[in-house]
């Protein structure tokens, strides 16, 4: 038996704004610890990991581990119908994920479970020279600034500053932010702006974003709830100079 209840739909909704932009299908893995998913996009450019601990839910029951395969667009269509003060209940029957919104009315949606084409990828452990946190809004604004000039962004960090830079046909933009964190090395890599923008659709998950950057290494971007009961993490392959 699987049953999970949340006092509002916002964490699921904001997570799947990003997840449904990146992958077509996902497998939720549930056990007594909580609900997780790992997914790699078709182009193998972005990997994502969502971890929602059992303690995050108002009620959480999972007698035995389950694998719940769903189409992310179909799930997002249902989540978009939620109201921010609705209670959300997730459960399963034979062949369906059942999503119930309890507010003014009780609304029950079923999504057919699907066969997965691929087994979910296991997240790789990558050793980084840097890790630091910056405000989510600042990062999102920087990406929107860069969008004026280019489809790619150079992200770099040193002991003092985080920098985002882009150059285009008609000019360039340079953003600097004193991060105030303990970063001992310098690192810089270039990334697709479109791919970063997809991740930042999860704009209500966390007030801060933790970034790990290396030199021509993937970007790790992590959104964590203050309570540490939820994390949405992305890994993005860099663009490198030919």
């Amino acid at each position: 038996m699987f049953k999970a209840e949340l006092s509002n739909p916002n964490i699921l909704k904001t997570s799947f704004e990003a997840i449904s932009a990146i992958v077509d299908e996902i497998q939720f893995q549930t056990d007594s610890e909580g609900l997780r998913l790992d997914a790699l996009d078709r182009g193998h450019i972005t990997f994502l990991h969502l971890d929602l601990k059992a303690s995050l839910f108002d009620e959480y029951i999972c007698d035995e581990p389950e694998k719940i395969n769903i189409d992310t667009d179909e799930f997002m269509k249902v989540l978009k119908r939620s109201k921010s003060d609705d209670r959300v209940l997730l459960s399963l029957d034979e062949g369906n994920l059942i999503i119930t919104f309890e507010g003014q009315a009780k609304r029950t949606f079923k999504i057919r479970l699907i066969d997965m084409e691929y087994e979910p990828a296991t997240p790789p452990a990558i050793e980084y020279p840097t890790e630091f946190s910056i405000p989510f809004d600042l990062f999102k604004n920087s990406i929107n600034d860069i969008d004026i000039y280019s489809d790619k962004v150079s992200l770099s960090v040193d002991s003092e500053k985080f920098k985002a830079f882009a150059t285009g046909e008609f000019g360039e933009v340079n953003i600097e932010f004193i991060h105030g964190e303990s970063v001992k090395e310098e690192a810089s890599s270039v990334f697709s702006l479109e791919k970063i923008s997809e991740m930042l659709k999860a704009d209500k998950f966390s007030d801060n974003v933790t970034l790990s950057i290396g030199n021509d290494m993937p970007l790790t971007l992590s959104l964590k709830m203050i309570s540490e009961e939820g994390e949405l993490r992305f890994l993005l392959a860099p663009r490198i100079e030919n």
């Binding site: 790699l40 193998h44 450019i45 296991t122 790789p124 890994l235 663009r239 100079e241």
Partner: peptide, 14 residues
Amino acid sequence: QYKQTTLDSYFKKD
């Protein structure tokens, strides 16, 4: 010129 890389080398199994 820049080219988009993939994550394949990070997901290689031992």
